[in-house]
Design a protein around this nucleic acid. Structure first.
Lengths: 242, 242
DNA sequence: CGACAAGTTGATGTTACTCAAAAGTGGTGG
DNA sequence: CCACCACTTTTGAGTAACATCAACTTGTCG
C-alpha cells in the first residue's frame, strides 16, 4: 500500500489511454498529451473550475480526478448535470458565444491541462476530440433517460455501468473493479436522489448480489445482469476499428 | 378564422426567423433557407425521422412541426430526451462515428429540409448553426436539471417558459401566447411524469393563475412569476448583438 | 483524543404512480 | 346529420417510491 492508485497503470496516463482508445494517435500527439500533463494545474476538491459567467475559455483536458458540470438552485440544492472523468474535455465544443450558465466544479482533486491543438483536421487527435464530444452528448442523453424514467435502483445500476465503461476506456478499471471517488451525496446530486435514498438503494444492490462496495472501491458482480436490467446500450456501436 | 397559424407570420417562415434571430444572415443565405423549405419532405406525426441504427445522415433543418429525440424502454415506456422545434437542426453536430442509439420521432406532422451548407466558416449561417448547437446543449443541461431536481409543478412551469422563448425566436408566439401541439402524454414523456399527473399539475397551474390553456393554445399569465419560481436563466446571455 | 465528514438507521410525510372509469373531442362513414 | 370510433382529457381511490427529519455510528485526520 505504499503506492496508491497510480500503480494500476504504471506506464500510461489515464487521459492518454482514454484518447488513444478513441482514435489512433501519432507518437507526436501522444507526446504532446504527456507534455501537457506535465504542465497541468491542480484544482482542489470542491473548488470551481469554471464559473458561470466565464466567457473566453481554452480547451482543457482532465488529466486526473473527477469533475462535474453542476447547476445550483435557490434553496441550496444542486444537480450534477454531467460527470467529467480523466480524458474528458472541457469546453471543446466550438462556441464563440456566451452559453448557458453552468459551473464546473472539481469533485475530487483534479489536474487540468490545456488540450493540445490538433495539427489539422482528421489527425488522430482531432478525431479523438470529436468522438469525445459526440460521446459527451450520448452521456447527456443517457442522463436524461435515467432521470426521466428510471427508479432509484435502475438509476444507480445504470450509472455504475456507465462509469465502469468510461473508466475502462481510460485504463482505470481492473476487470469489473474501479475506484469511485464520489460520496453518496454526490451520487444523489447526480441522480436526482437524496443521499439517504442512495444509501438504502446501494444496500439493496449489495443485498441482491449485484455489486460489492468497500470504501470507494466498486466491484460489479453481475455486470451482465445489471446491463440487462437497464437495457444498457453501449455508446459506441460495434465494428469501430480506431 | 379562415386562415390558421400561418397568418401569424405572413411574410416569414419559422425556420428562417429562427436562424435570423441567431445571427445576421446574408440575403443569399436567407434565399437558400427559403429554397430548402420548398424542397422539404413531409413526415407524418408519430413516424420516425431517424432510426437508431442509421449511420450516415445529412444535416437537416426542421421547417415546421415538432419532433423529439426519444429513447424507448423494454416495458413500452419512453422518454423524450429533447424537443426539436422549427428552425432546430438535426444531426448537425459533426460526428463521423456511429453514436448513441437515439431515435427521432415526429410528434406532429413535420416538414424537413436539407440544411443549406454555409459557403465557408464564419458566414452568418455558419455562426447560426454553431449557436444553435450550443443552445441545444444548453437545453439538454436544462432538461437534466428539470428532471433531477424539480417537482412536477416546477418542471411544467420551466418547460412552458423554455418553449415560449424558443418559439419566440422562431416568430411563433404572440406575446405570451403560443401553440403547444403536444398531448399531455407527450408532455409526460418529456418531463418524466405520467399523463395523469401532468393533467393534475396543469390544473394546479391554472388554478394559481399562472397559465391559461385552451385546446393547444397556451398563454402565460404571469411569466415573471413563473420565471422566478424556477429561477429561469435565459440561455443566451445579454448584450449579444447578432 | 476530539472533531468533522460520511455513512447508516428509523419513523413519518408527501409526491407521484397505478388502476379504473367517465366525459369530452374530432374525424369518418353510413 | 348522426352514429361510431379512437384518442385525449379528466376525475377518483388506493398504493408505492422517495423525501424529510433526526438521531446514531463509523471512519479519518490532525
Amino acid at each position: 500500500m505504499m503506492k496508491s492508485m497510480a500503480s494500476l497503470q504504471p506506464d500510461q496516463q489515464p487521459h492518454v489511454d482514454r484518447l488513444c482508445d478513441l482514435a489512433t494517435l501519432s507518437p507526436g500527439e501522444i507526446a504532446a498529451l504527456r507534455a501537457a500533463a506535465r504542465r497541468a494545474r491542480l484544482v482542489g476538491a470542491r473548488r470551481e473550475i469554471l464559473q458561470e459567467v466565464t466567457r473566453v475559455r481554452e480547451p482543457t483536458i482532465i488529466v486526473s480526478g473527477w469533475a462535474g458540470r453542476v447547476r445550483y438552485f435557490k434553496d441550496g440544492r444542486r444537480q450534477i448535470l454531467h460527470l467529467l472523468l480523466p480524458g474528458d474535455l472541457i469546453d471543446h465544443i466550438p462556441c464563440d458565444e456566451p452559453l448557458a450558465p453552468t459551473t464546473i466544479v472539481a469533485l475530487t482533486d483534479v489536474r487540468l491541462a490545456p488540450a493540445p491543438i490538433p495539427a489539422h483536421r482528421d489527425t488522430g487527435l482531432d478525431r479523438a476530440y470529436r468522438l469525445a464530444n459526440a460521446m459527451e452528448l450520448g452521456h447527456l442523453f443517457r442522463q436524461v433517460a435515467r432521470l426521466g424514467r428510471f427508479d432509484s435502483f435502475e438509476r444507480i445500476a445504470d450509472l455504475l455501468i456507465e462509469l465502469s465503461e468510461r473508466l475502462r476506456s481510460a485504463g482505470l478499471t481492473t476487470g469489473d473493479v474501479y475506484h469511485l471517488p464520489l460520496t453518496q451525496e454526490m451520487l444523489g446530486d447526480c441522480l436526482g436522489l437524496t443521499s439517504v435514498h442512495v444509501n438504502r438503494t446501494l444496500q439493496q444492490l449489495r443485498r441482491e448480489g449485484m455489486v460489492e462496495i468497500h470504501g470507494s472501491m466498486v466491484k460489479l458482480l453481475q455486470p451482465d445482469r445489471l446491463r440487462s436490467l437497464v437495457n444498457y446500450q453501449p455508446l459506441r456501436v460495434s465494428g469501430q476499428a480506431d
